[in-house]
Design a protein around this nucleic acid. Structure first.
Lengths: 220, 220
DNA sequence: TAGATTGTTAATCGATTAACAATC
DNA sequence: TAGATTGTTAATCGATTAACAATC
């Protein structure tokens, strides 16, 4: 989603098959959690309660993607998790390229949630000569941004993360010839039609929060 | 959204007055950018084109919050920026508390976009004795998480950021007695009715991206 | 069977778009 | 004035909710 947003606001990317996709990730996580707790079946009511989503919404979302439960019993957590992974496409691992090895880039390389969910950052790029050649996580080396396009092709990478300053983001995006880009730069990105962009804009989120806090306190 | 922010999916938080709020931040940034370029007036068409939003949407969004243009001329960038800041509540600075001084926490403290937009991280907390007492950014010291609640009250802080592991997030949220929480932990948060939560879930975003990439390539 | 819960329909709600009269 | 662009209406589109028959 380019959620102009939720999420984030990317420029040309395609129409999203609805917010249901985002919730699919939440159902997956919840199903995994319940499995780990030894729970075999979860009803739409239980899944929804844990996530703050109505049971009708849960059933509709899951049905929409062909994930079925058993009447009277609910959804088998193991099947549901496996099924959602297949729907999302994370029933295999995805190599990821990262552009920008600043504070945020460093945090993303070390983010445990990515690896645990099937994403491996396998290449890191920066323009800063002082960073190029630096060891990353003990297993990678920061490469020059000028090589990015070539390396992405060579490694068969389809996903990229942009964690560079806003002024550099557009040119980095142009060189990031991947199928999908997760953009953390606070700027809209113009990309070819066949590239999907999801933007995560930290300042926008914090500003939305401030608005909510004020709006909420005024209405009391 | 509690974006779900969008974004994300937070548990009890109130209904959001629509995605228009998120776009307000984008209009603000664009208006500031245009001002910096010496542009006095911007039409809804120009604002929209720069952001990938239709001109009708721009006019409706701005009108909804009482921001008016001049027929035949467009919106005066300076007035628009000032007006949106007032609507959002960022016509003043906001002190922010940060819980969790791991990789992500460190990146957020140094994130230039926050400071530039009126947010000052004025207190940082962690449970790890090895981190407590550490200098942050040359101007702060990591404080013990046990003191968080008390310190937030003493400093009059209304905004908090949670950047701790998922297992710890719920208890941290309970101690974070702020009006609004920006949650980076990949877990739903249950908070009192008068606390707003926006969740930013990095894994969910990357999973949505993978789904989009696949969906997009299948439809060709 | 009785009890529980799905899958799906119809109704509602909300957000977006198209169009154009108003007006600077 | 003529040209441009807003503000707003009505139409459309999409997502959510409520309800319940189907069925395990």
């Amino acid at each position: 989603m380019a959620r102009p947003g939720r999420k984030g606001g990317a420029l040309p990317s395609r129409p999203v098959p609805s917010p249901a996709v985002t919730r699919l990730s939440l159902y997956l996580r919840q199903a995994e959690l319940m499995m780990a707790q030894g729970i075999e079946f979860a009803s739409s009511e239980e899944l929804g309660r844990a996530l703050g989503i109505s049971s009708a919404q849960v059933r509709r979302d899951l049905g929409m993607f062909g994930h079925h439960g058993l009447r009277g019993q609910g959804y088998r957590c193991a099947d549901l998790a496996r099924g959602i992974r297949r729907t999302i496409g994370t029933d295999r691992r995805w190599p990821v390229a990262l552009a920008g090895f600043g504070n945020l880039g460093r945090a993303l390389v070390g983010y445990p949630g990515f690896r645990a969910r099937g994403f491996d950052i396998v290449a890191v790029f920066d323009v800063d000569p002082a960073k190029i050649g630096a060891r990353v996580d003990g297993r990678l080396v920061v490469e020059p941004a000028a090589r990015m396009s070539e390396r992405i092709r060579a490694l068969g990478i389809q996903l990229g993360i942009i964690a560079v300053p806003a002024v550099a983001a557009q040119s980095v995006a142009a060189a990031m010839t991947a199928g999908g880009i997760l953009n953390f730069a606070p700027t809209p990105l113009a990309v070819p039609d066949d590239v999907c962009v999801i933007s995560v804009d930290l300042t926008v989120e914090l500003e939305s929060l401030v608005f909510l806090v004020q709006w909420h306190s005024q209405r009391k």
